[in-house]
Every structure is written in C-alpha cells, then in structure tokens.
C-alpha cells in the first residue's frame, strides 16, 4: 500500500528561530497520526506547513490522489487551492477560525459543495441535513447562525463543514482544545466514529496524550521543533524511550 501523504525533511524557520526541523511523516489511508508535544514545540507550525497554511523553507510533501503523486510544494497556486478545498480539510482549534459566523450553519456546510460546482438547492439541502445528522446536530438548527451555537456544537459544525466533500486527508489542530471534559469526550467519540466509518486519514495535533491515545495509530513526539520519538501509539506511550517522552507520559494526571 502507498502512503497517502508523505513528508520528507521538512524545515520551517521564523528568521533564526526554529519553527520545525527535519520533520518526517508517513500517513497511510485510514490511518491516524498524532503529533504531541508541549506548548511551543512546533506542532502547529508543522501541521500548518504540511496543510498549505504556511510555506515551509525546505522539504518535500507528496500527496497521493489515486491517479498520481502530487508534489504539494511544487504545484501551482490554483491547483493547491483546489486540493485544499476538495481533497484536504483543516479543523482549527478555534471553530470560529474555520466557520463564517454571519452565515447560517447550513450555509457553512454548503460552501465547499458549491465551490466544486453543485448548483441544485434541493440536493445541497439534503446533503446538509445528512451531515448535521452525522455530527449529531439537530436538523432544526440548520438555519441558525453559528454564533447561537455552544462551543461543542461549533466544533461539530466545523467538522461537518470540512468533511462534506469527503476529503482524503484531514488535519486537526487541537480539535478538543478549550472544551470542557464531557464535551471533549463527545467530540472524540464522534471523531473516532467518523474515522472508522469513512476510513479517514488524519493528522491530529494535541498536547493531550489522552486524546492521542484514543484516536491515533501512530505518534510523533516533538520538542523544540524536532521529532524526538515516533512509532506506534501504544508502543511509544507504554514504553517511552526518550527522556522527554517519559516526562510527558509521567506528567499525565492519573485519576
């Protein structure tokens, strides 16, 4: 099987400051890779660099579309943006960054559909209802503005908005950050269900080891912009080799 996304020797600097250095990643279809590390370790820089939000200084990003392998950093701006709105999806930590707050919930979900040329209002409506149902938001809220939604609902709406065009690769930056524990659990549950059901390939960034353990198959531990350890999720978390990973694992509160 070919990896759907592979990243080789990716570097991103902010002036002299290291954003992330020598990063590698291989993502197979249906796989979830978690990126963990403390605040400031370069997780967000890394995920932004591989998803097209930031332009890395050097490195290679290859995306397998099924027919061809695309060199993500070499393609034209128009093809890149087409990929971003069809094959890729980005779930922001703050759902307000990924949603249009002055457009109704349904309108938010419909944007990607219409940008790939769907022009039948009735069909678009049906797809919206289907996705609201999938993310467990009541159909009756379809015409309400996101600003009337709770934090957890906003995050679920953002997930629906991103998944509606069945993207191949989903990037998530702290999708449960800033939510209370019970809502976090609900979102995680939903994500796990969608990952299985739709066979999604996901790169997820989190500082929360519990989130990663629950969702991820593989894990990359970052510190000071570099990967200090990587491997199968259970293996790394149960038998951490690097001193920093050991520290990270041992600092999780046991309840």
């Amino acid at each position: 099987m070919q990896p759907i996304l592979s990243v080789h020797n990716l570097n991103k600097y902010y002036g002299n400051q290291v954003g992330c250095k020598n990063m590698n990643l291989t993502l197979y279809p249906g796989e979830v890779v978690g990126v963990v590390g403390e605040s400031g370790s370069g997780k967000t820089t890394f995920i932004n660099s591989i998803s097209g939000n930031l332009i890395p200084d050097s490195g290679k990003i290859l995306i397998e579309t099924g027919n061809e392998t695309i060199d993500f950093l070499e393609i034209s701006e128009s093809l890149k943006r087409l990929l971003i709105r069809t094959e890729l999806a980005f779930v922001h930590q703050n759902p307000r960054d990924g949603l249009r707050l002055d457009v109704s919930a349904g309108g938010n979900i419909s944007e990607r559909l219409m940008s790939i040329g769907q022009r039948n209002y009735g069909n678009i409506r049906q797809t919206i209802f289907k996705w609201l149902d999938k993310v467990e938001i009541d159909k009756s809220r379809a015409d309400d503005f996101p600003r009337t939604f709770s934090g957890g609902m906003l995050q679920r709406l953002q997930i629906a908005k991103n998944l509606v065009t069945s993207p191949k690769i989903i990037f998530m930056d702290e999708p449960t950050g800033g939510l209370d524990v019970s809502v976090q659990a609900k979102i995680l549950d939903l994500l796990r269900k969608l990952v299985r059901e739709l066979n999604l390939s996901v790169v997820i960034v989190s500082h929360d080891l519990a989130v990663i353990r629950l969702l991820a198959d593989k894990i990359i531990v970052m510190k000071n912009g570099e990967a200090v350890e990587s491997g199968l999720c259970d293996q790394v978390l149960d038998d951490p080799q690097h001193s920093y990973t050991q520290l990270l694992v041992s600092s999780v509160l046991q309840v």
Binding site: S78, R81, R85, V103, G107, E111, S115
Partner: peptide, 22 residues
C-alpha cells in the same frame, strides 16, 4: 483578488443559498 484569479466563486452561491433559506 485571489478568489477572482482562481475562479473560487463557491462563496457567491452561499449568499444566494442564504437568501433562499431565509
């Protein structure tokens, strides 16, 4: 400007969608 250059006009229909919905 970018949206025009790349014909990314999905959002224009969002406005019409909102109209019909309301």
């Amino acid at each position: 400007k970018k949206m025009h250059a790349l014909s990314e006009y999905g959002i224009m229909h969002v406005k019409l969608y909102e109209d019909i919905t309301k």
